[in-house]
Simulated assay, not measured.
Amino acid sequence: EGRFPGVIDLFGGTGGLLEFRASLLASRGFISLALAYFHYDDLPPKLEETDLEYFEEAADFLLRHPKVLGPGVGVVSVCKGAEIGLSMAVHLKQVTATVLINGPNFILGVPQVYRGQIYEPMPHSIQLLSFTRLGLVEFGGIYEETRIVNNQYIFPIEKAQGHFLFIVGEEDKNINSKVYAKEATEQLKRNGKNNWTVLSYPGAGHLIEPPYSPLCCASGTPGVCSAVHWGGEVIPHAAAQEHAWIEIQKFLRKHLDVTSQL
């Protein structure tokens, strides 16, 4: 019965359709859309560009559903998905609450396109790629040189009208998410905004997922690398997943379910 907060769920560079987090959100009183955007059915097998109008269509589709509360929707996103989630928050008025799990504050890899405008990705220095003694690849440093001198690639996050929850694993070896979240919130501060919360977890790695999932320290990513080091230590990572999952739901309810605050 009734209407429920609507949420779009975005994963990262693995592609395909991953539904476990959306299913868990649905079991907690949200209407959730697990949204694939490449490597699935008739979608491109790999990303050549990211067309933001596709995600705008998804937000409008969700808001048209008779059981979605509105007037806005939330986004829960990780890694490449968090790049897209941040861009959605900046460009789409439909997005009013955005959860960004270990994401950048700029475009990764391929351009974004929105209504004829092309937004280029941040250049990177592949020579800064690093390897563990086990041969696992760490991408965390490849943007550190170019990012400092290329501010024009940073998202204008201050244009977003909604709220942000940044979730950071401080032992993330894939994205320097602690630094990027700090830059994003400082940018918001400089523009007189206070529409964010940061949860930063020492010992947690890149893949902060719903609780009781085991720590995935390393795995392959199709089309990118056969052995990516995600980072993280078992006990603090598990604790981060428990805490973050509760906070994600509280955040979404606070900023999407206005009826609960009456």
Rank of each mutant, 00 (worst) to 15 (best):
I101A: 08
Y114S: 09
H163E: 11
E120N: 13
E144S: 11
G135N: 12
A97M: 00
H163M: 04
Q127F: 06
G103L: 03
G162R: 00
G135R: 12
L129N: 02
M122Y: 04
S125D: 15
E120P: 14
N174Q: 03
P111W: 11
F166S: 02
K159Y: 13
G141I: 02
L134S: 15
T98S: 07
F106E: 15
K159W: 11
M122T: 07
K173P: 01
P104G: 04
V168I: 15
M88V: 00
M122K: 09
E171M: 10
V168L: 06
P104A: 05
V149S: 09
Q161L: 08
V110N: 11
V149M: 09
G85R: 05
I126E: 01
V113E: 09
L128T: 10
I167T: 00
V113T: 08
F131I: 13
P123W: 12
G162L: 00
H91C: 02
Q112S: 15
D172E: 12
I148E: 12
I126A: 02
S87V: 03
I107V: 14
K93L: 12
L165G: 01
A89N: 03
F155C: 02
Q94H: 13
P156E: 12
R147C: 06
V149C: 03
N105E: 15
V113P: 13
E138D: 08
N151F: 04
F166I: 06
G169C: 02
V95C: 03
F164W: 08
Q161S: 11
G140E: 14
Y143D: 06
L134Q: 15
Y153G: 05
T132V: 12
S87G: 10
S125Q: 14
V149D: 13
P123V: 10
L165Q: 01
L129M: 09
Q112D: 14
K93S: 13
I118E: 14
Y114I: 13
H124P: 00
A97N: 00
Q117W: 03
G140W: 04
R133A: 14
K173T: 14
G162C: 01
Y119V: 04
F131H: 10
R115N: 14
Q152M: 08
A89Q: 04
V90N: 07
L92R: 04
H124K: 02
G140N: 08
I175E: 05
I142E: 05
I107A: 12
M88P: 09
S125P: 05
I157V: 10
G109R: 05
H163W: 06
A97V: 01
K159H: 09
R115F: 04
Y119E: 05
P104I: 01
L86N: 06
L128Q: 10
H163D: 06
L128V: 10
P156C: 08
I175M: 06
N151W: 08
I157N: 09
L165H: 00
H91M: 03
G162M: 00
E171P: 02
Y119I: 05
E145M: 04
E145S: 07
G116E: 13
G103Q: 01
K93H: 12
D172I: 12
E170H: 00
E145C: 03
V110P: 09
I154F: 15
G85W: 09
F106L: 13
G140C: 08
P111K: 08
R115W: 10
F155W: 15
I142L: 10
P104R: 09
V168A: 05
V110M: 14
A89D: 03
G116L: 15
T96P: 09
Q112T: 08
I101L: 13
I142Y: 04
N174D: 05
P121H: 10
V137E: 07
T96S: 07
Q94L: 05
